[in-house]
Nucleic acid binder design. Structure first.
Length: 271
DNA sequence: CGAATCACCTGATCGC
DNA sequence: TGCGATCAGGTGATTC
């Protein structure tokens, strides 16, 4: 489900729900076998802790407490919701019971998600080796992308989805950014000139920012923590539009598999 | 070493 | 209606 805009939307929803004074009473694990097992001591480490912030790094959420951070990745199907009494669903793997009586539920049918602990002193391994945040112009810019692409023969689409190059870009927004930058997804990354890197950086940044402003994209069952769906799916130019006309030049959009992921592009507009 | 492929899981959808 | 094949917003391990 979630790329950067969806995770950021969830983060903002959680921030609104939790406000400034949420305190964890206790954490209840229903099953531990997600992508990696949820640590046994996670409930004990979080019990009684106030949530002082909900941050996002890449596609990860971090619930900060004075003692430790609760690290969460939504995988493909992870969701957080406020679960009133009686609202228990299959694939609810974790309940965070708050001191005010409310309950946050983490639900993840495919179990590709992650719940773990992280601290400033010992950051979780998943947080090391992450590339720059795309919305931070100080760290993600054409020179950085150009340097990351140098010598790489992999498809440009695969490279911008590489979380060591730039974080937060997944299959949907990679396709959309490449269309907006006029670059074929299969173009070897090492053959991007500075002009294309410039355009691609701008396209990634603007498509992610617009998607955040739209509350993310709702396909299948994504919902932000407040329960509302985003609406950026109505802005898709190429994703899931194989065989349909390009909205810019009317050519028929094509789909191929690149690095194992379906990739739609316009053979007329993208070079 | 980099790059492509597989594996992890469940659920929705599609063609027969 | 039922059933198998295929696909899905991610990422880490394995293979080439």
């Amino acid at each position: 489900m979630p790329e950067l805009p969806e995770v950021e939307t969830v983060r903002r929803g959680l921030e609104t729900l939790l406000g400034r004074s949420a305190v964890i009473d206790h954490v209840e694990l229903r099953r531990r076998d997600l992508r990696a097992p949820i640590p046994r001591d996670l409930p004990r480490r979080l019990a009684g802790q106030p949530i002082i912030a909900v941050r996002r790094r890449a596609k990860y959420l971090i619930f900060d407490t004075p003692a430790v951070g609760l690290l969460c990745h939504l995988g493909m199907t992870g969701t957080w919701r406020l679960a009133p009494p009686g609202d228990e669903r299959t694939h609810d793997h974790c309940y965070v019971h708050l001191a005010d009586g409310r309950r946050l539920a983490f639900r993840d049918p495919r179990r590709f998600g992650l719940l773990a602990l992280t601290t400033a002193a010992r950051p979780h391994a998943a947080l090391t080796g992450l590339g720059p945040e795309p919305l931070d112009a100080a760290v993600f810019h054409a020179d950085a992308l150009l340097a990351a692409c140098r010598g790489r023969r992999a498809a440009t689409k695969a490279v911008i989805m590489d979380q060591a190059v730039v974080v937060g870009v997944g299959n949907i927004y990679a396709a959309e950014a490449l269309f907006r930058a006029g670059i074929r997804p299969a173009r070897p990354a090492g053959r991007l000139g500075r002009d294309r890197c410039e355009r691609l950086v701008g396209a990634i940044r603007s498509v992610l920012a617009k998607a955040i402003a739209a509350g993310g994209s709702t396909i299948s069952d994504f919902r932000q923590a407040g329960g509302d769906g985003g609406y950026f799916q109505h802005e898709f130019q190429v994703y899931d539009r194989d065989g349909q006309p390009c909205l810019a030049c009317r050519a028929t959009l094509r789909q191929r598999r690149i690095a194992g992921r379906s990739s739609v592009y316009c053979p007329g507009c993208q070079r």
